[in-house]
């Protein structure tokens, strides 16, 4: 991307210093800690991390879908310049699904089992377009199923009559119903077989080409992200530890956690080599350390790491990492 192009890239979603906490008894657990990054128009951004890193909590918070005991401690989520977190119910209703839709983990299990797929799609459509009549709703529902590769004759079937992959595609269809500008997907293909996953991701890429929406793809699967994202943000224990263009993250990572994570994926192609993953265990958020959250497991730690939490260091305008070794 040229400098000019970068400057002209329109920012769609601007997350600024977002922190989300869980109230557990008297303790406030910081599941997301001052995370900031953007998603530009037409971009696919990956948010990578393992279980407990806070990525799903973040996903919920972005559309103000979090519920107690989760609460937003600080920060803003600017969508086209306006803070979603300050929207009232009516503004939220207009924002959700029309501007941004969310596809959750195991979304296939989020379909209402006692209502037909048709009814579920039309439900979303009519809620935002009360002016559409029954015929128009049905036509649009058929169109959506076709877009995701499901035969429109299956419109009146029930979720249990669809396979896992088809249910996921049905959810994708619902998420596209109102032509959103941003789709947030949380582990969209985790429960699916690799061939089905490939079909869905290819479909998603085609749809993206066709409709031009942005995607925030949240997943632990760096291999998948490596193929389809423009930039990747890596989270660990609630903090953003590295963000850079995807190729940089995968082939030239700077943060030791990112390096460890990248080296946790054996390759199918290329040279076969011995890998180690990352030693140790995930951080206990109940008693977080004073210094760097990754220090305990870090093979490159220095004396400073135990006492002081590193700042997010800008290596170049596109690449930032939170590590003392880079300062």
């Amino acid at each position: 991307m040229t400098e000019l192009a970068k400057q002209q890239a329109e920012i769609l979603l601007d997350i600024r210093g977002l922190s989300v906490e869980y109230l557990v008894g008297d303790t406030r657990l910081r599941a997301v800690d001052q995370v900031s990054f953007t998603v530009n128009k037409g971009e696919t951004v990956g948010l990578a991390g393992e279980s407990g890193c806070g990525k799903s909590t973040l996903a919920f918070a972005l559309a103000k879908l979090h519920k107690p005991p989760a609460l937003i401690a600080e920060g803003e989520v600017l969508y086209k310049g306006r803070d979603v977190l300050s929207f009232d119910d009516e503004e939220l209703r207009r924002f959700r699904w029309k501007e941004t839709s969310v596809v959750f983990q195991s979304a296939m299990n989020c379909l209402n089992p006692v209502i037909s797929i048709n009814a579920q799609i039309c439900d979303v459509l009519s809620a935002h377009h009360p002016e559409m009549n029954r015929g128009e709703l049905q036509d649009r529902a058929r169109e959506l199923l076709q877009i995701v590769g499901i035969h429109p004759d299956r419109l009146n079937q029930y979720p249990h009559q669809f396979s896992g992959g088809m249910r996921q595609r049905a959810v994708l269809a619902i998420s596209l119903a109102l032509k959103p500008q941003l789709i947030i997907m949380d582990e969209p293909t985790t429960a699916l077989d690799v061939v089905v996953e490939r079909e869905i991701m290819d479909q998603l890429s085609e749809l993206k080409q066709q409709f031009g929406f942005s995607i925030l793809l949240i997943s632990h699967d760096l291999s998948l992200m490596g193929e389809i994202t423009d930039r990747i943000a890596v989270m660990y224990a609630g903090k953003l530890v590295e963000i850079a263009p995807s190729e940089e993250v995968l082939f030239n990572p700077k943060h030791p956690y990112t390096k460890g994570l990248v080296n946790s994926f054996p390759h199918l192609l290329g040279e076969k080599k011995e890998l180690t993953g990352i030693a140790g265990n995930p951080l206990n958020l109940y008693s977080p350390p004073a210094g760097c959250y990754f220090e305990e497991r870090c093979p490159e730690r220095i004396w400073l790491c135990k006492s002081t939490d590193p700042a997010l260091i800008t290596l170049n305008p596109q690449h930032k990492a939170k590590c003392h070794l880079l300062g």
Partner: peptide, 11 residues
């Protein structure tokens, strides 16, 4: 199966 497996080297 092999073509379906995600691999950043395929990028």
């Amino acid at each position: 199966l092999i073509s379906a497996v995600p691999d950043p080297l395929k990028r």
